[in-house]
Amino acid sequence: MSEWRYWFAEQKGTLLALGIFIAMFVIYTANHPAGFTANVVQTASNKGVLLAFVAMAQTLVVITAGIDLSVGMIFLLTNCLASWIVVGTPLETALGVIAVLLVGVLCGALNGAIVIYGRLQPIVATIATGSIYFGIALLLRPYPGGSVNEDLADALTGRLFGVIPSSLVALVVVVLVVWVPFRRSVYGRAAYAAGSSEVAAYMSGVPIKRGKFLAYTLGGLLAAIGGLFLTFFTYTGEAAYASGNAYTLFSIAAVVLGGVSLFGGRGSAIGAIFGAFAFRTIGDLLFVFDLDPLWQPLFQGVVLLIAVSLGAFALFRVKNRLEWFG
């Protein structure tokens, strides 16, 4: 019995995000003119998966009590790169995919090296590296364009057996291959420990540096997977500053909605995935209710504002006022 209580306490944020997402999605499909069909689910999943990858990347870094304001730019950079090299014969395409993922790993590793071994603050360091990544993306694609192996793209954005969106399957595979092993490894625990209390983790001999470094590096990898999928959806590469910024911002929103604590050490990438889906569905709700798209940014902003203010209710439980000041 008490085992269950611990499990529930740990997964509360994730379950809440799942609940919000299901509620939003039910409202969405109930009011959608086409209703709950495979097509609607496929479109929603394709849009949601992009943000889900970026949000997972953000989660890995946020767990270590850091923040990565360059995820959106890594996402753009890998998108632009993929529009050059993920083409041609199956072998060339495979090599291209590997190269794109490697570039993502490199970007994440650079962030990690600057933050951990250079001992700079993650906010400033990743804003600066984000500017570098955007510059490289702009070098690769001064104008939108390029192409991608369309067979692979269609396979990964279509449906399996006519019903299951394959992008969703890809997301599950990435969770199983990247997130679960990380979470269960020594380094994953070290990342959580470092986010919870770096001093205590250091005193206990936890390999915090390597744990944090791995978290940043895998964050880059996940952002690159997101960039790859963006290329599969759009068939082009584009270095749009506003879009990179928006993905960074939305990834933080998704992480918060997904119950990941920005102070570090709490939450999971699964929660962030549901947070990302919920955030996307909220944005799409306006369309099914036939409102002017002009209102969408305001609506998303207000939802974000309310979502982050909900955390303030925890203040009422604080008995000692000093705990307000953390």
């Binding site: 933080i252 929103a253 920005l262 902003g301 974000l304 504002l305």
Partner: peptide
């Protein structure tokens, strides 16, 4: 409300933009 400044300012930025 003790919301981390990074989040609340991102949110007000989005609202002001909206």
């Amino acid at each position: 409300l003790r919301i981390p400044s990074m989040i609340i300012t991102l949110a007000t930025n989005a609202v002001a933009q909206g």
